[in-house]
Nucleic acid binder design. Structure first.
Length: 591
RNA sequence: GCCCCCGUAGCUCAGUUGGAUAGAGCAACGGCCUUCUAAGCCGUGGGUCCCAGGUUCGAGUCCUGGCGGGGGCGCCA
């Protein structure tokens, strides 16, 4: 729709922008501070703090600026009143009729008014990326879940998304594994639990090699044979890879994660030598101490984004001629550029790789310039998240304290099942199993998503698997309550209204909260922080449950009120459903 | 040594990038089911936002210096 400004925030922001211009402050700032929900209901529904910005720029009293902007505000059907408060806040109170109508329009919009900021644009998202020949553990969870949710948020805002699982399927560990396989394979164990056996072989190799260093030479030789295309080693490697991907896929399916591509490190093996040569030829890289490196002298490092990069070095070819993951990252980026011409490439990894990606991004930009390409396209984003640590410290397969991802999911579902059996014994066995799966897996996803990704998390079973409070089951329950009410309404032949008519304060609060959904989606994506969407859904659920408790729907009395309230309930169900979908949590109609 | 991140209620964490009187969940205590799902709702108690300065109309948020914790830093990923 041409010129349409869908969200409440954008409507009011636009109004303020026009008023500021009319008040003679048009060119003062290039951006208008977005209107936001009021920090306290006493201050109205929404507030604009733009007058402070203007006041600072004009070196005048912000209160006076606010008065001037207020006086210049155009009439708008959505705005019931505007007040200037305190040192220069503009407080808006919205019109009840407009809120109800607006909500009706929002739920009829397939995008729920979510701004389609990515329309016509392509993003490659690189996430999850576990190493082949090992089982996935909880350390892989954050990249997988956060990455997948960003994937969903990008799609919701109109982007074309290429989700790429850049698995670690190449490197020296396969030579070791081949040696170990030939010496110590327990074929029965492999049949029963392929990755378990591969892990055991890998650990055994490490132990044996300590006593007999000659094994390392043997492994190096096998790696070299593999990379030279030796058919026997190649077949073994392919087998390791195949059983791994099969097992990963089972976990992804339970987590509702789906990739468009699984192009691991091995896919770029043949490009690495050429990449290094190109970087040398273009003067992006240089030889140093026998290796090939990209240097970042302090005086060449550009801007705040590259803070901490100064005087560091990225090695892209070792003294012995071998390549490193930085080399692969650059070759991969070049492949992505050629293949999908993305506007943006997002890497979702933990905080430890910050410096690495600053280096890769800076090296890429230099490479792009040297070839006459636009260094800003694709724009490169490293969305990092904090470490997941166990209460007793770091997790390592050597210490044997890893928590496998499937075990976490199984335990979550087991606990959820106990609650379902207790609360809903009347449901069929099959339905209870389905609910337990959705609740358990949803709880795990939500536990991760609902906190700021950049915080470190200490792994805690009880917290991760909590089923009440601010959790996935709470959101699922709220949605199920909505659906239950609507199902009963259908049974009684009650009409669901076209529009919502605001009456009770809780109807108003719920409608306003629902209208914030598209703002929350944009905010979550802009900051790369799914927890902002979680907060919104949690608040929505809380308001709905208070509404549900205090305001009768089916027993409201007159048919018009029943119809209006049912429309509100349906709007709540729609928003909760879409929100849960964006978080990758399977939605339930009953529980 | 240099660089990055963090320090908020007993515990786990939010805090919309500088906005109005700092909020949730858990745990504790008290209340609400003859009415639409009590996996719910309401209430009570709980704070030197690590410390000290600074910037301004306004600082948990920004700058400086400490203290404490985590992570990274040329041939691992």
């Amino acid at each position: 729709m041409e010129g349409d400004v869908p969200t409440v925030s954008s409507v009011l922001t636009e109004l303020v922008a026009e008023a500021a211009e009319r008040a003679g402050h048009g060119g003062v700032l290039d951006e208008v501070e977005p209107a936001r929900p009021a920090s306290d209901p006493r201050f109205g529904d929404y507030q604009s703090n733009h007058a402070f910005r203007l006041g600072r720029a004009l070196r005048t009293n912000p209160r006076a600026v606010a008065e001037a902007v207020r006086a210049a505000l155009a009439e708008h059907p959505g705005v019931a009143s505007v007040e200037v408060a305190g040192p220069g806040f503009l407080n808006f109170r919205l019109d009840d009729g407009w809120i109800g109508a607006r909500l009706g329009e929002m739920v009829r919009d397939p995008a729920l008014f979510v701004e389609q900021s990515g329309a016509g644009r392509t993003v490659v998202i690189d996430y999850s990326s576990p190493n082949v020949a090992k089982r996935m553990h909880v350390g892989h969870m954050r990249s997988t879940i956060i990455g997948n949710t960003l994937d969903r948020l990008y799609r919701a805002t109109g982007w074309r998304v290429v989700a790429d699982n850049h698995v670690g399927d190449w490197g020296t560990q396969y030579g070791k594994l081949i040696v170990a396989w030939r010496r110590w394979l327990d074929r029965e164990a492999f049949e029963a639990d392929p990755l378990g056996e591969l892990e055991r072989l890998y650990v055994r190799f490490g132990r044996e090699a300590e006593a007999d260093p000659a094994l390392l030479d043997e492994a190096r030789a096998e790696t070299a044979k593999l990379q030279a295309g030796d058919p026997e080693n190649r077949a073994l490697w392919e087998r390791f890879r195949a059983v791994s991907l099969e097992e990963f896929e089972a976990v992804y399916e339970r987590l509702h994660v789906r990739f468009d591509e699984t192009l691991g490190e091995s896919a770029y093996h043949d490009e690495l030598a050429g990449t290094v040569q190109a970087l040398l030829d273009l003067g992006v890289a240089e030889e140093s101490e026998g290796a090939v490196v990209v240097k970042f002298p302090a005086d060449e490092v550009e801007g705040r984004r590259f803070k901490g990069l100064a005087d560091t070095v990225l090695v892209i070819r070792k003294k012995d001629g071998a390549f490193l993951y930085g080399t692969t990252d650059l070759a991969t980026l070049e492949y992505r550029r050629r293949t999908w011409a993305p506007d943006e490439v997002v890497y979702v990894t933990d905080v430890r790789q910050q410096l690495h990606f600053k280096q890769v991004f800076a090296a890429w930009r230099r490479w792009a310039r040297a070839r006459g390409l636009d260094p800003d396209r694709p724009s490169l984003v490293h969305t990092w998240f904090g470490m997941l640590v166990l209460p007793e410290g770091s997790m390592s397969s050597r210490k044997g304290n890893v928590v496998r991802l499937v075990d976490l999911l199984d335990e979550a579902v087991r606990r959820a099942r106990a609650v379902v059996d207790e609360k809903s014994p009347h449901l069929s066995e099959a339905e209870r199993a389905r609910i337990a799966e959705a609740v358990g897996v949803g709880a795990v996803r939500y536990a991760d998503l609902s906190q700021n990704p950049q915080s470190n998390v200490t792994f805690d079973w009880d917290r991760m698997l909590a089923l009440d409070g601010n959790t996935a089951p709470y959101l699922l329950y709220t949605h199920a309550r909505c659906r239950s009410l609507l199902a009963r309404a259908a049974g009684e032949g009650a009409e669901v209204g076209e529009a919502v008519r605001i009456g009770e304060p809780l109807e108003r609060e719920l409608a306003l909260r629902l209208l914030r959904f598209p703002e929350a989606v944009s905010l979550a994506l802009a900051h790369g922080r799914p927890n902002l969407l979680c907060d919104q859904l949690y608040e929505t659920a809380n308001v709905f449950n208070r509404f549900y408790y205090e305001v009768p729907v089916l027993r409201a009395g007159d048919a018009a009120t029943v119809a209006s309230r049912l429309a509100l309930v349906e709007a709540a169900a729609t928003v909760m459903r879409r929100g849960l979908e964006l978080l990758g949590i399977e939605v339930l109609d009953r529980m």
